[in-house]
Amino acid sequence: MDLLRSHGIHTGSRKGLHAQRRGNSLRRSHVDLEVIIPAYNEAARIPGTITQTADFLSGQPWSSRIVVVDNGSVDGTGAVARRLSREAGTAVPISVIGCSRRGKGAAVRRGLLSGTSRFTGFFDADMATPLETLTVAMSHLEEGAAAVIASRHAPGSTLVRPQQLGRRVGGRAFRALTRTKVKGIFDTQCGFKFFERDALTTAMVQCRATGFAFDVELLLRLQHQNARIIELPVSWTDGAASTFRPIHDGFASFASVIQLQSRCHD
């Protein structure tokens, strides 16, 4: 119970979690796929992200919804997204929810656990990974994969616009650390991950990380379930306006990952 409460899920049992999900489903009608977009101070960028995503999804064979999670923004991100949701057509509905607990992991968890679609996942508002990757991801999920993640470092991937030197150096060190935790995965941090609902929920309710180490813990939990994870090499473009702060967030992420091994055996 304490673990669920630490995630902002105030319930006494797993049964309570299912009740919460049923309550959320009353607010969001069922679709095949929900695309979660965590957003912190993205008022300038979110209109283009939503428009491009909706245009792409409207041409796909599966029904879908965009869910923007406003992670305590102070620049009107939520208001901008809600305006777009009111103006949107019915082909791809747009929902906007809030997450007062800071951290990308907290925002992603809020979005993923609040739906009931068979498939769900998230990508960053900077759209660094091509939208077309979602078509390939869905084909793998429909064939039985538990998770499909984009990778900037798997064989066959390319960097259209690389990160700045400081972030590249920090990224190499972080990947060296995560390889000791998440076996066989080249890139745990690419902001594009999609899942089959049941496998995701089982792993997600155990996760405690709320920051940039959230991805590592989620993948590690999935591996402990022997879930099949597909890593897709992509052509990736660095987002110049990333909210990641190399020094502050980097140290916090390293510390969180170092604690994972003992935490995941609790």
Results as ranks from 00 to 15, higher is better:
R109W: 11
L26H: 14
L131E: 01
A106F: 03
T51K: 14
L159R: 15
W62T: 02
A213R: 01
P155E: 10
A79K: 15
L4E: 06
G121A: 03
L57K: 00
L113S: 14
I36D: 00
G211S: 12
F192C: 11
L260R: 09
I185G: 03
V96M: 05
P233V: 03
R152L: 06
P93M: 04
H153M: 08
F192R: 01
G98V: 09
T77H: 04
S64G: 00
Q163F: 09
R5M: 13
E34G: 04
I37L: 04
P246M: 07
S139P: 00
A125P: 04
A255T: 11
I46V: 13
R101T: 15
R179F: 01
H224M: 11
A252W: 08
T53E: 01
F119R: 02
D2M: 12
F174E: 10
T180W: 08
V205D: 09
A88S: 14
D198C: 08
M204G: 10
I50D: 03
G72W: 04
R86A: 10
L177M: 10
H248S: 13
T77W: 03
H265M: 10
T237C: 08
A176T: 12
F174G: 08
R28G: 05
V67D: 03
H18S: 15
K193R: 13
A173N: 09
W62N: 00
A252K: 14
N41H: 08
G156E: 08
G191Y: 07
S64D: 00
A43N: 06
H153P: 08
F56C: 04
Q259F: 05
F192D: 05
A173H: 11
T77A: 03
L4T: 07
I149D: 05
R110F: 04
G16P: 07
S29Y: 09
H7G: 13
R83W: 06
G23E: 08
G16E: 06
E231I: 01
R65L: 05
D124M: 01
T237R: 12
G211M: 03
S139F: 05
T49I: 04
A107F: 02
S117Q: 04
G144P: 01
R102T: 13
V96A: 06
L260W: 07
S58Y: 03
Q225A: 00
R167M: 12
S6M: 10
I50A: 08
R245D: 12
T188S: 15
L131S: 01
F186E: 14
H248R: 15
T188G: 09
Q164N: 12
Q163H: 13
L177S: 02
E132Y: 03
T202K: 15
F212M: 09
T120Q: 02
I94H: 01
F244Y: 15
